[in-house]
């Protein structure tokens, strides 16, 4: 995962080019290495066999310079595409922040593309990464050859989620930078999101059940609300008011945010919570329908808090006065 160094004000992210053998992963890196300003990149290192087939990885460090005070670096890696080298291929994925899947567009390569994609999913799983949560861009390479698979077909087979994709001819550089720009942006977005608005993961703890009418649900906890069985069904309330409590509000001084934004993100499908008033800065009332048929599962997470204009100025003065 990305490495963030506050001492040197540096963020370093790892992007891996994945794909079947000879699909053009190394070519992508070579083109980038050739074209970007020399001061922004290091040497391209290739751990390859005598026949120039990648044995372990290719590595190209790129430093895009300061983005809002943080020196931002990308480490571009490729994996060996050949099926045979899965042991080393898997190792390259360790700590990956974003992926480019380079597919070979030639008609005869469809099976290899699929096999490689499947292999990617499996290898990621071994590290406990979920491909659905990982920034991923697809590149359909070798569009200049014939016969090739139409893009629609590739999309259907490899990209049912509708992720960004680019057609490319890596040897000539077509599509190479578009792909790289897209994945860099996705990776930085994610790194920033994780750091600025650390998402409090919702874990399903030991399932507790609470009778209807239970009031406080702390942030990050998931709970099941069931109708009170001692009360006859007819006279049970159809809804109950719950209070969502955020014990530790996001680290922004409360005094300057009159109304923190608390957003409900998740409830059981079919259950709609009606958001009510916000009380006391970190609490929110919500009305929840009680289904008589069975338990209702609710959990919630805090929404993004946006900083008002002048926040930094305000804090600057505050710190100044402290001294």
């Amino acid at each position: 995962m990305a490495s963030i160094n506050y001492a040197f004000k540096e963020i370093s992210c790892k992007i891996v080019y994945y794909g079947p053998g000879l699909s053009g992963k190394t070519t992508n890196l070579q083109y980038v290495h050739q074209k970007i300003p020399p001061q922004t990149r290091g040497e391209l290192i290739s751990l390859a066999t005598d026949q120039d087939r990648t044995l372990y990885f290719d590595f190209l460090p790129v430093n895009i310079g300061k983005v809002h005070g943080f020196s931002t670096k990308f480490q571009l890696y490729t994996v060996p595409g050949q099926v045979y080298y899965n042991a080393t291929r898997k190792l390259v994925l360790r700590g990956v922040d974003g992926l480019v899947f380079v597919a070979d567009s030639q008609k005869s390569k469809m099976d290899e593309n699929l096999e490689s994609y499947q292999n990617l999913v499996e290898n990621l799983l071994e590290y406990g990464y979920n491909l659905n949560k990982m920034p991923l861009v697809l590149q359909y390479n070798k569009r200049d050859l014939t016969p090739i698979i139409p893009v629609e077909e590739l999309e259907k087979a490899l990209n049912p989620q509708g992720l960004p994709f680019y057609e490319a001819v890596a040897v000539r550089g077509a599509g190479v930078f578009d792909t790289l720009k897209c994945i860099s942006k996705l990776v930085l977005d994610q790194a920033k999101r994780k750091q600025l608005f650390p998402k409090r993961e919702i874990e399903i703890k030991e399932e507790e059940t609470h009778p209807a009418g239970v009031s406080q649900i702390p942030l990050g906890e998931q709970m099941t609300v069931v109708a009170d069985s001692s009360v006859p069904v007819e006279s049970q309330p159809t809804s109950t008011v719950i209070t969502l409590v955020e014990e530790k509000p996001a680290p922004i001084p409360e005094e300057i945010i009159p109304q923190p934004l608390i957003a409900l993100e998740k409830t059981q499908p079919g259950v709609e919570l009606k958001i009510g008033e916000i009380t006391g800065g970190n609490q929110m009332k919500a009305e929840m329908p009680v289904t008589k048929a069975g338990p209702t599962l609710i959990s919630w997470s805090a929404g993004k808090r946006t900083k008002p204009k002048g926040f930094f100025l305000w804090r600057f003065f505050k710190q100044l006065f402290k001294r």
């Binding site: 995962m1 490495s3 963030i4 506050y6 590290y127 406990g128």
Partner: peptide, 13 residues
């Protein structure tokens, strides 16, 4: 096996 970002602070460095 999944790990968070490695974050290093000034004091640590």
């Amino acid at each position: 096996m999944k790990q968070d970002d490695l974050v290093i602070y000034e004091e640590q460095i």
